[in-house]
Design a protein around this nucleic acid. Structure first.
Lengths: 212, 212
DNA sequence: CGTGCGATGTATCGGTCCGATACATCGCGG
DNA sequence: CCGCGATGTATCGGACCGATACATCGCACG
């Protein structure tokens, strides 16, 4: 998952580790807390070893002037390679079971702007199925096993069930929008003047896989 | 977290691993998927080594009759010890930062029936604070950084923000109930005679630490 | 003028937990 | 009689986290 996220972000711009972490936090803030450096740096090295990204020490232009008294451990900027872009395209298109859990779905969804519509649809439906299963499980517990559980546990299940139902509805909307070929967000007639701004990166229609 | 959950469950009844996993799934179904055996068994051994639980091979009553031709790897039943109960009480009462993340809070909440009111209140308020912070982060991104993000990412944040607001409201209700000294859930007058039953292993009322 | 503190930045280590896998037993239907 | 799904115990490699360490930079405050 981390691999996919890093590749996706570096596709937008070269970055160094710290920046990557911040961008990741901004993009995935709804899904998970900031990524740990204990995951980030080892993963970066793994990606580099695989050839998906390249590392370049930041050169301060006229560098030879500075005699490196303190060795100035410069920021290391990572850039995605052509192979890395291929890898990203492959990862984003193929959906395994982990694609539908909370984190996996969130990461895939965050890069939907770089995903073709068929895949988007497939992932949304897979996620819906997953959540529906969780929902049924909770209903079962609340129905059949209710008297075995204490009031707090029941309340927890009820809250979880509510969240499931809500997410299914959200997914239904997204799926409907996707099928109709429209933009992903809910049309907001009336109230706030709609959310017409934010035309945003992806052209409403399809994604693009164009390579330079 | 797993340690706390296992100790809590074994306080209700002795169990073997498989059963533990199922009960855990039922109790925490709203929070997380079933625990992996790759976590469960090592943790059980750790707890046993620490003396919080004891392991007892299941004896089929008249066992010497069976000549153990196939060695019959019997089910291993785990029982919590007095030290284990102390440990549980200590874990459930003390709240660190991990108490307020999704999983940690869920586990603590699931054992609120065995938690004193002051601690319940403290945990609910800590969780609320945590979620409020996440909510503010999402509002910031949706406000300040909106034009930098594509429509899908924004939709993800919006959905996350909605979930945060909903959870805060839920927590407010629970906190209010807690302060008023009432039961956490909607009062259930009439129907089942109000949780008087709950036959099951542990005696009805509240947690008890006495052992036969 | 310094000094200390928060943001930026790279990096490692131990520990928790997961997913895949293996293997054995049991009851039941075909 | 055989297979198959539920029950049941167990291990291994890998992903990810939290704590920690260390270094630089700019700026506010005394």
């Amino acid at each position: 998952m981390l691999e996919l996220a890093i590749l996706g972000l570096l596709q937008e711009a070269p970055m160094h580790g710290y920046e990557l972490r911040k961008e990741l936090a901004a993009k995935l803030g709804a899904i998970r807390a900031a990524i740990s450096y204990g995951s980030l740096y080892p993963t970066l090295r793994r990606l580099q070893a695989a050839g998906w990204i390249t590392e370049a020490a930041e050169t301060p232009a006229t560098a030879e002037e500075v005699p490196a008294l303190t060795s100035r451990r410069g920021r290391v900027v990572y850039t995605i390679t052509a192979e890395g872009k291929e890898r990203f395209a492959q990862l984003i298109a193929q959906a395994g079971p982990e694609t539908y859990d909370d984190t996996g779905f969130g990461v895939h969804f965050a890069f939907f702007a770089r995903t073709d519509q068929a895949t988007r649809l497939r992932i949304l439906e897979g996620r819906r199925r997953r959540i529906e299963e969780r929902r049924e499980g909770l209903r079962d517990v609340l129905g059949r096993a209710a008297e075995r559980l204490d009031a707090y546990t029941l309340e927890l299940q009820r809250h979880g069930l509510d969240a499931c139902e809500r997410e299914v509805r959200w997914l239904e909307e997204l799926i409907a929008n996707e099928r109709s070929g429209r933009a992903p967000t809910v049309p907001e007639p009336g109230t706030a003047g709609g959310r017409r701004e934010n035309e945003s990166p992806p052209p409403p229609g399809e994604s693009r896989t164009e390579r330079p």
